[in-house]
Simulated scan of single mutants.
Amino acid sequence: MKTYIAKSLLQVIPVLLIVSLIVFILVRVTGDPVALMLPETATAEDRAVLTQALGLDQPLYTQYIKFIGSALQGDFGTSFRYGESALPLVLERLPASFELAVAAMIFAVIIAVPLGVISAVKRNTFMDLIISSLSVVGKAMPNFWMGIMLILLFSVMLGMLPVSGRGGMEHLILPAFTLGVGLSAQMTRLIRSSMLDILNQDYIRTARSKGIFEIVVIGKHAFRNGLIPVVTIMSLQFTSLIGGTLITETVFAWPGLGQLLVVAVNTHDMAIVQAAVFVIALIVVISNILTDIVYRLLDPRIKYN
């Protein structure tokens, strides 16, 4: 296991290099940052001076080599919008995104686990039909629409919760619920499917034939083995929540990484885009390694070479 983790950590290097290369090229071929940074009244001389100052007059490969050298030192450039180093700005927004992602994931797990297990145990019953229908509806509702509806209901009409911003727990409820509903719907269906496969296994029938209580069969023998695909989707969804909650963070004015990335893309702030994508890629890679470790803890039969 230690050897596998060491090899996985070494694989982080080429992955991040490929990600940095793709982002570096895409950012530079999608527009002219000099035109965005200078006013319309700027002269050709002003453009030439700024182009040279940013190093944009050099070949792309030279720019990339310098970019990698600076990135290894934690320098992704200076944001022309904020006038500060890009990486600290990204790291400053990261805790807010983590807070929202963790809250949404906790909400999704609390809802999805019992509903998924009940739906599998009560297969083809009225209860299963209700849970399956709710899962479909929850997955079909767009996040931005649900967020707006929740604001209108709980903030505008009832005045119970704040409309936007980050503060206490009351500010977290609506955005976390908005993100968690769609995720819980997806996890519920996955847990149901996984549990149905497990409940048809021979060792489950053997446990039941021995007279073991049904709650022990479900909780100890079936549920733990049915968690592996759930852990996979949780890992994938959590990393997407970190960098992909663009619409939800915008609707609720949540000061997270997603909102910062949207503004950076709209203003063509290359330094912010590069730093944000680099950090998100690192989180994804580390999350995948942790997921493999959890697999091993859930099922000791899994071996890594």
Rank of each mutant, 00 (worst) to 15 (best):
M149S: 12
R166G: 04
L190Y: 11
G138L: 00
S135A: 13
G219N: 10
L150R: 00
F144G: 11
I215P: 02
K220D: 08
L179T: 00
P142R: 11
I204V: 15
I228C: 01
V181N: 01
F154N: 01
N143F: 07
D197S: 11
N225R: 09
M187S: 04
I204T: 12
F154C: 00
F154V: 01
L161V: 06
S184N: 06
H171C: 07
P162K: 09
G167V: 12
S133T: 15
H171R: 05
I148V: 14
G211T: 04
D202M: 06
V136L: 14
S155I: 01
D197A: 03
G211V: 08
M187H: 08
F144S: 08
V181W: 03
Y203T: 01
G167I: 12
G182T: 00
M169S: 09
F144Q: 06
L134C: 10
T206L: 10
P162C: 09
V137H: 02
S194L: 07
L158S: 07
R208M: 11
V216L: 12
K220C: 04
W145A: 06
G182V: 06
R192M: 03
I198S: 04
F144I: 04
F177V: 11
E170N: 13
R208S: 11
S193V: 02
V136M: 11
W145G: 00
G168V: 14
E170T: 13
G165I: 14
P175E: 06
R192W: 05
G226E: 05
M157E: 15
T206C: 00
N143V: 08
I212S: 10
L161Y: 08
R192I: 02
H221G: 02
W145V: 03
A207K: 02
L134Y: 08
A185R: 02
L161M: 10
Q186F: 12
F144H: 08
I131H: 09
S194Y: 10
I204S: 13
P162D: 14
K220L: 02
G180K: 02
R224K: 14
L172G: 01
G165Y: 14
F154L: 07
A222C: 09
G211P: 09
G165C: 13
P142W: 13
I148L: 14
M146L: 15
S209A: 14
I173H: 04
A176R: 00
S133F: 15
L134F: 12
D197G: 10
Q201D: 15
A185W: 11
N143Y: 12
M187D: 07
F213K: 09
A176N: 00
L227A: 01
A176L: 02
H171I: 07
S209G: 03
L183N: 05
F223R: 00
